[in-house]
Nucleic acid binder design. Structure first.
Length: 339
DNA sequence: GAGGCGTGGCA
DNA sequence: TTGCCAAGCCT
């Protein structure tokens, strides 16, 4: 069989997607006539940035139940949204989520714009998310490129240029493959393919719907594609957090709006530095961030030292404080010790 | 362009 | 255990 006689790339991919699409809370059935709610599509795409499907599912369901429309979200208290996002990571996304909802209400009459350019101008919406929402929610034939799609196309076309320089070639290769009639399913199909078949390691090429003309198939080094730049070593940092208890409550603060864990509730404490503290603490946790590892040691302080803005939080309701995982680890340890 | 920015699962 | 990685965005 010649290559010319097989179905087009999009036909093979969509045929596979119609059979194998994952059933996800934010997803409509493939080819469904129902119009996806742009708010839900946008919400899912923001949460899915650098975050696994498994981690997102519960958060997505809670958010759209609590704030069913973009107007509901725009009217929400910042503290409630940040607390609801706690544990999902990359907290700038939550700040931008609120900012975006408020722009959509204030400047777009509460309806998401339907063009890639207008979406791209919204807070927290970059090239990927603008294209994904345009394709999935509005049927626009946008060229959607995420890390899954980069991997699929880099292998299918044997693009050996290292990332991020390869992005241009990948986009150029992908653009003519996008079908005008089902661009949203096409994008989601490519992402499902990358997540389940064309995986980073040990891809399941025998089950791949586009393997017939894949230029990387059979290569022993297929899992080296796409080529990525070397990673830097992460430095070790140390810090102290203060456990200030009074009655049945603990003193919590809110971190500055930008930077690490920006805008999130936290235990008070000192700066994080490269020097290990000499003070011995109640407990400590080791926590890995994207660009450094942190050992945070909890030390007891008297309430008289509780300077600055903060709030007494009932120990029995700490789960509702919306602490990031770093601090959640410490409070869980304390709870074990108290129990 | 490169670095800051979380977290959890997996081999 | 350690490193890699996941539907990126912002500066």
């Amino acid at each position: 069989m010649s290559v010319q006689s097989i179905d087009s790339f999009a036909e093979r991919l969509l045929g596979w997607y119609d059979r194998a699409a994952r059933d996800l809370p934010w997803r409509h059935p493939p080819g469904s006539a129902a119009t996806p709610d742009p708010y839900r599509v946008w919400m899912a795409e923001i949460m899915l940035q650098q975050t696994t499907v498994a981690a997102v599912a519960g958060y997505f369901t809670r958010f759209v139940q609590r704030w069913p429309t973009v107007a509901d979200l725009a009217a929400a208290d910042d503290a409630d949204v940040m607390a609801a996002w706690a544990g999902l990571g990359y907290y700038a996304r939550a700040r931008n989520l609120l900012a975006c909802a408020r722009v959509v209400v204030a400047q777009h009459g509460g309806r998401f714009p339907d063009s890639e350019d207008a979406l791209r101008a919204l807070p927290g919406v970059g090239d990927y998310t603008a294209a994904a929402v345009a394709a999935i929610a509005f049927g626009r034939a946008a060229v959607v490129v995420d890390a899954n799609i980069e991997r699929v196309i880099a292998r299918h076309r044997l693009i050996e240029t290292p990332l991020p320089a390869a992005k241009r070639e990948i986009r150029t290769a992908l653009a003519p493959l996008v079908p005008q009639d089902r661009p949203g399913d096409f994008a989601q199909g490519l992402m499902d393919l990358g997540a389940t078949i064309c995986t980073p390691r040990a891809p399941a090429c025998t089950r791949c719907p586009v393997s017939a003309d894949c230029r990387a198939r059979g290569r022993s080094d297929i899992d080296q594609l796409p080529v990525k730049p070397p990673k830097k070593a992460k430095p070790q940092r140390y810090g102290l957090a203060w456990w200030i208890e009074e009655g049945d409550a603990v003193w919590l603060v809110r971190r500055p709006g930008k930077g690490m864990l920006g805008g999130m509730r936290a235990l008070p404490g000192g700066e994080w530095t490269g020097e290990a503290p000499t003070e011995s603490g109640l407990v400590h946790v080791d926590h890995g961030f994207t660009h450094f590892d942190l050992r945070l040691t909890l030390v007891r302080r008297e309430s008289a030292h509780a300077a600055g803005e903060g709030e007494w939080w009932p120990l029995s309701a700490l789960d509702a404080a919306g602490l990031p995982t770093l601090y959640r680890k410490l409070t869980d340890r304390m709870r074990e010790d108290i129990a």
